[in-house]
Amino acid sequence: MAVESVPPWDPPTAHRGGRSRLPLLPRLSCSVLLFGFVLLCAVGIASSLIWGDGTPGDLRIDRNEAVGTWRDGDGGSLTLNMDGTFQASALCGHYRGASSTEVFDLTPRTGSGTWTFHAPETGSTEVRLTFAQVRDLTSFTSGGTHAKPVLWQWLGDPDEGRLCKLHRAP
């Protein structure tokens, strides 16, 4: 009587009759895991295409669109007035002193001062703030959409991924 043997290098599915020797549950588990992996990769790729590095993206706004009140997620606010003045209350931000040799500070600011508007030919608009009392400087870049504009800036090292985002108050 001859015994048929399957060489050890043959996969378990290489069986006469074309049927797998693996039970149904492990085959389904492998299929579910593979599907989950492919789905996770697709979501990761799509999110990186949509949100990129986490910034709100470029948005070009005009000076009139910048005027008004903006709020951060921690209760801070910034009101930009048409006459080029502003008022800030507990405003998040990355500040530096008037001297370029002064270190950067991430402490929220309250105060008033003047703001300027910089709109390059391409890319985002920039709003620059100068606090009158302490001569601290900071700037915000416009982003988001015209329906939901955002003024934003990095907090500290951009590699850390922390943002200060200001949303237009209703």
Score class of each variant (00 low, 15 high):
Pro23Arg: 14
Ala132Ile: 00
Glu126His: 12
Met82Arg: 12
Leu59Ala: 06
Leu24Glu: 07
Gly144Gln: 04
Leu80Met: 06
Ser31Val: 12
Glu4Leu: 12
His146Gln: 10
Ala46Gln: 13
Phe140Ile: 02
His15Tyr: 13
Thr141Leu: 03
Thr110His: 10
Leu33Thr: 11
Gln87Glu: 11
Gly143Ile: 01
Gln133Ser: 10
Ser5Leu: 14
Gly57Cys: 15
Gln133Arg: 06
Pro8Gly: 12
Gly52Cys: 07
Pro23Val: 10
Ala119Glu: 10
Asp74Ala: 15
Asp105Leu: 11
Pro108Gln: 05
Asp83Gln: 04
Pro8His: 09
Thr85Val: 01
Ala90Gly: 13
Thr13Tyr: 15
Ser29Lys: 13
Leu34Met: 10
Pro120Val: 14
Ser139Asn: 03
Phe37Gln: 09
Asp74Glu: 15
Met1Asn: 13
Pro23Cys: 10
Leu78Asp: 01
Asp105Glu: 13
Pro56Gly: 00
Asp10Val: 14
Leu129His: 04
Thr116Asp: 06
Thr85Lys: 09
Thr114Ser: 03
Gly57Met: 02
Gly161Ala: 07
Gly36Lys: 09
Asp159Ser: 10
Ile45His: 14
Thr101Tyr: 15
Ala147Asn: 01
Phe35Leu: 13
Glu121Gly: 15
Asp58Cys: 00
Leu151Gly: 00
Ser89Val: 09
Gly36His: 08
Trp152Ala: 03
Ser29Ile: 13
Gly52Ser: 00
Trp154Cys: 10
Asp72Val: 01
Thr110Glu: 08
Leu78Glu: 01
Leu166Trp: 02
Thr69Cys: 12
Pro158Arg: 04
Pro23Tyr: 11
Ala119Leu: 06
Pro8Val: 08
Leu166Phe: 14
Met82Asn: 15
Arg71Cys: 04
